[in-house]
Design a protein around this nucleic acid. Structure first.
Length: 293
DNA sequence: AACTGTTCCAACCGCCTCGGG
DNA sequence: GCCCGAGGCGGTTGGAACAGT
Protein backbone atom coordinates (compact mmCIF):
# COMPACT_ATOMS: atom_id res chain seq x y z
CA UNK A 1 0.00 0.00 0.00
CA UNK A 2 2.71 2.38 1.01
CA UNK A 3 4.56 1.44 -2.11
CA UNK A 4 1.52 2.20 -4.24
CA UNK A 5 1.01 5.57 -2.59
CA UNK A 6 4.64 6.37 -2.89
CA UNK A 7 4.55 5.39 -6.52
CA UNK A 8 1.50 7.55 -7.20
CA UNK A 9 3.04 10.41 -5.34
CA UNK A 10 6.24 10.24 -7.28
CA UNK A 11 4.28 9.96 -10.51
CA UNK A 12 2.33 13.06 -9.64
CA UNK A 13 5.47 14.90 -8.74
CA UNK A 14 7.08 13.86 -11.99
CA UNK A 15 4.02 15.00 -13.91
CA UNK A 16 4.02 18.30 -12.07
CA UNK A 17 7.69 18.79 -12.70
CA UNK A 18 7.16 17.95 -16.36
CA UNK A 19 4.31 20.39 -16.58
CA UNK A 20 6.37 22.96 -14.75
CA UNK A 21 9.24 22.45 -17.16
CA UNK A 22 6.91 22.94 -20.12
CA UNK A 23 5.58 26.23 -18.84
CA UNK A 24 6.92 29.26 -20.59
CA UNK A 25 8.03 32.35 -18.74
CA UNK A 26 9.24 35.77 -19.66
CA UNK A 27 8.07 38.07 -22.41
CA UNK A 28 5.07 37.06 -24.45
CA UNK A 29 5.45 36.42 -28.15
CA UNK A 30 3.11 37.84 -30.79
CA UNK A 31 1.80 34.35 -31.44
CA UNK A 32 0.97 33.84 -27.80
CA UNK A 33 -0.77 37.19 -27.69
CA UNK A 34 -2.85 36.35 -30.74
CA UNK A 35 -3.73 32.96 -29.34
CA UNK A 36 -4.90 34.50 -26.11
CA UNK A 37 -6.85 37.28 -27.82
CA UNK A 38 -8.55 34.89 -30.20
CA UNK A 39 -9.43 32.45 -27.47
CA UNK A 40 -10.91 35.11 -25.23
CA UNK A 41 -12.86 36.66 -28.09
CA UNK A 42 -14.39 33.26 -28.78
CA UNK A 43 -14.88 31.97 -25.27
CA UNK A 44 -14.63 34.91 -22.94
CA UNK A 45 -12.32 35.39 -20.02
CA UNK A 46 -12.16 33.76 -16.60
CA UNK A 47 -11.12 30.33 -15.36
CA UNK A 48 -7.62 31.26 -16.33
CA UNK A 49 -5.88 27.98 -15.65
CA UNK A 50 -8.41 26.09 -17.73
CA UNK A 51 -8.27 28.83 -20.34
CA UNK A 52 -4.51 28.56 -20.62
CA UNK A 53 -4.70 24.81 -21.17
CA UNK A 54 -7.64 24.97 -23.56
CA UNK A 55 -6.01 27.68 -25.62
CA UNK A 56 -2.84 25.64 -25.85
CA UNK A 57 -0.78 28.27 -24.12
CA UNK A 58 2.14 26.98 -22.13
CA UNK A 59 1.59 29.65 -19.53
CA UNK A 60 0.13 29.69 -16.08
CA UNK A 61 -3.38 30.96 -15.67
CA UNK A 62 -2.02 33.81 -13.66
CA UNK A 63 0.32 34.79 -16.45
CA UNK A 64 -2.52 34.76 -18.99
CA UNK A 65 -4.74 36.81 -16.75
CA UNK A 66 -2.02 39.36 -16.16
CA UNK A 67 -1.15 39.61 -19.83
CA UNK A 68 -4.78 40.12 -20.74
CA UNK A 69 -5.63 42.62 -18.05
CA UNK A 70 -2.46 44.67 -18.26
CA UNK A 71 -1.73 44.60 -21.94
CA UNK A 72 -4.09 42.90 -24.35
CA UNK A 73 -7.48 44.14 -23.19
CA UNK A 74 -8.91 46.35 -25.94
CA UNK A 75 -9.72 49.18 -23.56
CA UNK A 76 -6.25 49.42 -22.08
CA UNK A 77 -4.96 52.92 -22.49
CA UNK A 78 -1.28 53.37 -23.15
CA UNK A 79 1.15 56.25 -23.06
CA UNK A 80 1.82 59.04 -20.64
CA UNK A 81 -0.58 59.80 -17.88
CA UNK A 82 -2.54 62.96 -18.50
CA UNK A 83 -2.40 65.70 -15.91
CA UNK A 84 -5.96 64.69 -14.99
CA UNK A 85 -4.83 61.21 -14.29
CA UNK A 86 -1.71 62.24 -12.45
CA UNK A 87 -3.59 64.43 -10.07
CA UNK A 88 -6.29 61.87 -9.58
CA UNK A 89 -3.63 59.34 -8.68
CA UNK A 90 -2.06 61.70 -6.18
CA UNK A 91 -5.44 62.45 -4.71
CA UNK A 92 -6.64 58.88 -4.48
CA UNK A 93 -3.34 57.65 -3.14
CA UNK A 94 -3.53 60.23 -0.40
CA UNK A 95 -6.83 58.68 0.60
CA UNK A 96 -6.22 55.01 0.11
CA UNK A 97 -2.49 54.44 0.07
CA UNK A 98 -1.14 51.63 -2.06
CA UNK A 99 -4.54 50.30 -3.02
CA UNK A 100 -3.60 50.23 -6.66
CA UNK A 101 -6.49 48.24 -7.98
CA UNK A 102 -8.91 50.47 -6.13
CA UNK A 103 -7.24 53.54 -7.57
CA UNK A 104 -7.21 51.97 -11.02
CA UNK A 105 -10.97 51.57 -10.87
CA UNK A 106 -11.23 55.34 -11.08
CA UNK A 107 -8.89 55.67 -14.02
CA UNK A 108 -10.63 54.04 -16.97
CA UNK A 109 -8.24 52.15 -19.18
CA UNK A 110 -5.40 52.27 -16.71
CA UNK A 111 -4.20 49.20 -14.89
CA UNK A 112 -3.15 48.87 -11.31
CA UNK A 113 0.25 47.77 -12.53
CA UNK A 114 0.69 50.91 -14.58
CA UNK A 115 -0.35 53.15 -11.73
CA UNK A 116 1.91 51.30 -9.36
CA UNK A 117 4.82 51.72 -11.75
CA UNK A 118 4.03 55.38 -12.14
CA UNK A 119 4.04 55.85 -8.41
CA UNK A 120 7.25 54.00 -7.86
CA UNK A 121 9.21 55.51 -10.71
CA UNK A 122 7.94 59.07 -10.66
CA UNK A 123 6.49 59.94 -7.32
CA UNK A 124 8.86 58.00 -5.14
CA UNK A 125 11.72 59.47 -7.10
CA UNK A 126 10.72 62.91 -5.90
CA UNK A 127 10.58 61.71 -2.33
CA UNK A 128 14.01 60.22 -2.67
CA UNK A 129 15.39 63.44 -4.05
CA UNK A 130 13.86 65.28 -1.12
CA UNK A 131 15.40 62.81 1.29
CA UNK A 132 12.04 61.98 2.73
CA UNK A 133 9.58 59.16 2.65
CA UNK A 134 6.52 59.26 0.38
CA UNK A 135 4.41 58.65 3.43
CA UNK A 136 5.98 61.45 5.39
CA UNK A 137 4.05 64.64 6.16
CA UNK A 138 6.77 66.58 4.39
CA UNK A 139 6.20 64.87 1.10
CA UNK A 140 2.44 64.90 1.48
CA UNK A 141 2.63 68.63 1.99
CA UNK A 142 4.80 68.99 -1.07
CA UNK A 143 2.21 67.13 -3.09
CA UNK A 144 -0.73 69.04 -1.71
CA UNK A 145 0.65 72.50 -1.86
CA UNK A 146 3.01 72.41 -4.80
CA UNK A 147 2.60 69.55 -7.15
CA UNK A 148 -1.15 69.24 -7.23
CA UNK A 149 -1.93 72.96 -7.47
CA UNK A 150 0.63 73.22 -10.20
CA UNK A 151 -1.11 70.50 -12.13
CA UNK A 152 -4.39 72.31 -11.70
CA UNK A 153 -2.78 75.46 -12.93
CA UNK A 154 -1.38 73.83 -16.00
CA UNK A 155 -4.59 72.07 -16.86
CA UNK A 156 -6.51 75.27 -16.42
CA UNK A 157 -4.07 77.18 -18.58
CA UNK A 158 -4.34 74.60 -21.32
CA UNK A 159 -8.12 74.57 -21.11
CA UNK A 160 -8.30 78.36 -21.19
CA UNK A 161 -5.99 78.50 -24.16
CA UNK A 162 -8.01 75.89 -25.94
CA UNK A 163 -11.33 77.61 -25.39
CA UNK A 164 -10.17 81.23 -25.36
CA UNK A 165 -12.30 82.08 -22.39
CA UNK A 166 -12.44 82.08 -18.65
CA UNK A 167 -13.75 78.79 -17.45
CA UNK A 168 -16.38 78.39 -14.88
CA UNK A 169 -17.38 75.48 -12.73
CA UNK A 170 -19.67 73.31 -14.72
CA UNK A 171 -18.36 74.66 -17.98
CA UNK A 172 -18.05 71.59 -20.14
CA UNK A 173 -15.14 72.99 -22.06
CA UNK A 174 -12.81 72.80 -19.15
CA UNK A 175 -14.64 70.90 -16.53
CA UNK A 176 -13.07 67.54 -17.10
CA UNK A 177 -9.65 68.65 -16.12
CA UNK A 178 -9.85 71.76 -14.06
CA UNK A 179 -12.88 70.94 -12.03
CA UNK A 180 -11.62 67.53 -11.25
CA UNK A 181 -8.23 68.88 -10.35
CA UNK A 182 -9.67 71.59 -8.21
CA UNK A 183 -11.66 68.89 -6.58
CA UNK A 184 -8.62 66.80 -6.01
CA UNK A 185 -6.61 69.64 -4.54
CA UNK A 186 -9.49 70.78 -2.44
CA UNK A 187 -9.78 67.26 -1.18
CA UNK A 188 -6.15 67.07 -0.32
CA UNK A 189 -6.08 70.47 1.29
CA UNK A 190 -9.43 70.72 2.92
CA UNK A 191 -9.23 67.24 4.31
CA UNK A 192 -5.63 66.73 5.23
CA UNK A 193 -6.32 63.67 7.26
CA UNK A 194 -8.75 62.29 4.75
CA UNK A 195 -11.46 61.88 7.30
CA UNK A 196 -13.33 65.14 7.17
CA UNK A 197 -16.85 65.35 5.84
CA UNK A 198 -17.41 66.29 2.26
CA UNK A 199 -17.43 69.99 1.64
CA UNK A 200 -17.56 70.36 -2.09
CA UNK A 201 -19.16 68.60 -4.96
CA UNK A 202 -18.12 68.79 -8.55
CA UNK A 203 -19.51 67.39 -11.71
CA UNK A 204 -18.38 66.76 -15.21
CA UNK A 205 -20.61 66.63 -18.19
CA UNK A 206 -21.35 63.42 -19.98
CA UNK A 207 -19.76 64.70 -23.15
CA UNK A 208 -16.33 64.35 -21.66
CA UNK A 209 -17.07 61.62 -19.23
CA UNK A 210 -18.68 62.27 -15.90
CA UNK A 211 -17.30 62.74 -12.51
CA UNK A 212 -19.20 63.19 -9.33
CA UNK A 213 -16.97 63.59 -6.39
CA UNK A 214 -18.10 64.21 -2.90
CA UNK A 215 -14.92 65.26 -1.31
CA UNK A 216 -13.43 63.27 1.45
CA UNK A 217 -16.14 60.68 1.30
CA UNK A 218 -15.44 57.03 0.85
CA UNK A 219 -15.03 55.41 -2.52
CA UNK A 220 -18.76 55.01 -2.95
CA UNK A 221 -18.98 58.74 -3.27
CA UNK A 222 -16.49 59.13 -6.04
CA UNK A 223 -17.39 57.99 -9.51
CA UNK A 224 -15.43 58.45 -12.69
CA UNK A 225 -17.09 57.27 -15.84
CA UNK A 226 -16.75 57.37 -19.55
CA UNK A 227 -14.02 58.44 -21.86
CA UNK A 228 -11.00 60.46 -21.10
CA UNK A 229 -11.25 63.43 -23.34
CA UNK A 230 -7.73 64.72 -23.75
CA UNK A 231 -8.88 67.79 -25.61
CA UNK A 232 -10.86 69.01 -22.68
CA UNK A 233 -8.37 67.91 -20.10
CA UNK A 234 -5.54 69.82 -21.63
CA UNK A 235 -4.06 66.90 -23.48
CA UNK A 236 -1.21 64.67 -22.51
CA UNK A 237 1.35 66.11 -20.20
CA UNK A 238 4.56 64.23 -20.36
CA UNK A 239 5.65 63.55 -16.85
CA UNK A 240 8.95 65.23 -17.50
CA UNK A 241 7.15 68.52 -18.06
CA UNK A 242 5.32 68.19 -14.82
CA UNK A 243 8.54 67.33 -13.08
CA UNK A 244 10.13 70.45 -14.42
CA UNK A 245 7.19 72.51 -13.26
CA UNK A 246 7.33 70.85 -9.92
CA UNK A 247 10.96 71.65 -9.41
CA UNK A 248 10.65 75.11 -10.90
CA UNK A 249 7.96 75.82 -8.36
CA UNK A 250 10.04 74.25 -5.67
CA UNK A 251 12.87 76.63 -6.40
CA UNK A 252 10.63 79.70 -6.68
CA UNK A 253 8.76 79.43 -3.45
CA UNK A 254 9.95 81.75 -0.76
CA UNK A 255 8.18 82.40 2.51
CA UNK A 256 7.96 86.12 2.05
CA UNK A 257 7.44 86.48 -1.65
CA UNK A 258 3.73 87.04 -1.39
CA UNK A 259 3.21 84.00 -3.53
CA UNK A 260 0.46 81.49 -3.46
CA UNK A 261 2.02 79.21 -0.98
CA UNK A 262 3.21 81.54 1.68
CA UNK A 263 0.60 80.58 4.22
CA UNK A 264 1.46 76.95 4.41
CA UNK A 265 3.77 75.25 6.75
CA UNK A 266 5.90 72.83 4.82
CA UNK A 267 7.71 71.54 7.84
CA UNK A 268 11.20 72.27 6.75
CA UNK A 269 10.85 71.13 3.19
CA UNK A 270 11.03 74.52 1.56
CA UNK A 271 13.93 76.45 2.95
CA UNK A 272 12.75 79.11 5.32
CA UNK A 273 9.20 77.92 5.66
CA UNK A 274 9.81 76.72 9.12
CA UNK A 275 10.32 80.33 10.13
CA UNK A 276 6.91 81.40 8.95
CA UNK A 277 5.09 79.68 11.74
CA UNK A 278 1.76 79.59 9.99
CA UNK A 279 -0.83 77.06 10.87
CA UNK A 280 -1.23 73.93 8.83
CA UNK A 281 -4.94 74.31 9.43
CA UNK A 282 -4.98 77.32 7.18
CA UNK A 283 -5.89 75.28 4.17
CA UNK A 284 -7.39 76.10 0.84
CA UNK A 285 -10.97 75.90 -0.05
CA UNK A 286 -12.29 75.18 -3.50
CA UNK A 287 -13.02 78.88 -3.82
CA UNK A 288 -9.39 79.64 -3.10
CA UNK A 289 -8.35 77.34 -5.86
CA UNK A 290 -10.40 79.40 -8.25
CA UNK A 291 -9.09 82.66 -6.90
CA UNK A 292 -5.67 81.23 -7.51
CA UNK A 293 -6.57 80.69 -11.13
C1' DA B 1 31.94 54.04 -30.96
C1' DA B 2 32.10 51.97 -26.56
C1' DC B 3 31.07 51.85 -22.04
C1' DT B 4 28.42 52.91 -17.83
C1' DG B 5 24.59 54.47 -15.25
C1' DT B 6 19.67 55.34 -15.05
C1' DT B 7 14.90 54.88 -16.08
C1' DC B 8 10.94 52.47 -17.04
C1' DC B 9 7.75 48.79 -17.39
C1' DA B 10 6.29 43.97 -18.30
C1' DA B 11 6.24 40.05 -15.84
C1' DC B 12 6.83 37.25 -11.89
C1' DC B 13 6.32 36.03 -6.98
C1' DG B 14 4.22 35.30 -2.64
C1' DC B 15 0.47 36.12 0.14
C1' DC B 16 -4.37 36.64 0.99
C1' DT B 17 -9.34 35.99 0.32
C1' DC B 18 -13.18 33.63 -1.32
C1' DG B 19 -16.11 30.01 -2.81
C1' DG B 20 -17.13 25.23 -3.80
C1' DG B 21 -16.84 20.47 -2.44
C1' DG C 1 -15.15 23.27 9.84
C1' DC C 2 -11.53 22.01 6.65
C1' DC C 3 -9.21 21.68 2.32
C1' DC C 4 -8.06 23.18 -2.11
C1' DG C 5 -8.00 25.74 -6.30
C1' DA C 6 -8.85 30.16 -8.52
C1' DG C 7 -8.49 34.81 -8.63
C1' DG C 8 -6.86 39.18 -6.94
C1' DC C 9 -3.53 42.19 -4.96
C1' DG C 10 0.78 44.55 -3.75
C1' DG C 11 5.77 44.12 -3.86
C1' DT C 12 9.77 43.10 -6.45
C1' DT C 13 12.83 42.19 -10.28
C1' DG C 14 15.02 41.52 -14.98
C1' DG C 15 16.20 43.53 -18.85
C1' DA C 16 15.43 46.67 -22.77
C1' DA C 17 15.80 51.39 -23.95
C1' DC C 18 17.73 55.60 -23.24
C1' DA C 19 21.04 59.22 -21.55
C1' DG C 20 25.42 60.68 -20.28
C1' DT C 21 30.43 60.45 -20.49
Amino acid sequence: MDVVLQSRSSNNMAAEQEEEAELRRGPWTVDEDLTLINYISDHGEGRWNALARAAGLRRTGKSCRLRWLNYLRPDVKRGNFTADEQLLILDLHSRWGNRWSKIAQHLPGRTDNEIKNYWRTRVQKHAKQLNCDVGSPTFKDAMRYLWMPRLVERIHAAATTATGGEPSIGDTSCASGVTLMATAVATATACPENNSPASAVTSRSASSGSITSELCGDEKNLHVHGNDDKTTSGGDWPMQDVDQEFWAMHMQIQPDDGGLFQDHELSGWVQGFSDVGVSADNLWSLEDIWKMQ
